[in-house]
Amino acid sequence: MEYFLQQLINGLTLGAIYGLIAIGYTMVYGIIGMINFAHGDIYMIGAFMAIIWFLVTGLLGITWVPLAILVMLVLSMIFTATYGWTIERFAYKPLRGSQRLAALISAIGMSIFLENYVQLLQGARVKPLQPMVQGGIAVMERADGFVVNLSYLQIIIMALTLALMLGFSQLISRTELGRRQRACEQDQTMAALLGVDVDRTISITFVIGAALAAVAGVMVTLYYGVIDFYIGFLAGLKAFTAAVLGGIGSITGAMVGGLLIGLIEAYWSAYFSVEYKDVAAFSILVLVLIFRPYGILGKPEIEKV
């Protein structure tokens, strides 16, 4: 029971991170019908940004940890969002209107480019970040001394993710920006007829997706303490699986899918085998694609138009 609870905490933390990345996949898919294979690498860039801005906060003499983390988050979001915008502008926008396969290949190329770019600039070895947030709460203790621990960092990750997701859902459902975004998802020509700048809305989608992935990147760097240029590949695939599991195109689906993948991974490594934890996530991808390709919250297209 105690062990189960510990895995629940770990799984939710991991799931929060996957969920944040998955939103970027699902939004881009929703608006231009393309799987942005470079999105995992955007997340990786966000993780490297965390280390870079950590060093800068050190140089600036910011020693108060909450402020340092805030500065790291905000700057990483801004700079990673710039990467997101640039990639869309130069790798995808020129291909709009051509075959879907062209954009997909461009995305894969972009992914390889980003990995090599970071490897060249930052080296191939893992980068460490010293622990910034330590300690936690002992939730429960078993007779044999096993302690269920909820670390402060886990609390931060879950709370921040929750706040971002709530804020983001409000943005999409309540604001003019959100309406424009949804209008472009549903009918771009009609949106343009009503005065929506479709290109700009697509750019904003990439910017938002990248900013959320940057948060995930910063959190992962704080959580694991080490990163390398290759982390975007696996995390990206898992977040993509989360987006498909939740129903690609559905934002709530991406969040739910992320949490599920995190939990599955945590329990799988706890009760079966750590070595094969990635297999669990991808078996799910295969099963979902075969039996419920529109995911848990997605709907098969049956709308009257």
Binding site: E176, R179, R180, R182, A183, Q186, D187, T189, M190, A191, L193, L194, V196, E303, K304, V305
Partner: peptide, 14 residues
């Protein structure tokens, strides 16, 4: 070309 997944009000807001 009504936006099918938006409410009537949201369509008018658009």
């Amino acid at each position: 070309r009504i936006f099918p997944r938006m409410t009537v009000l949201e369509n008018l807001q658009m």
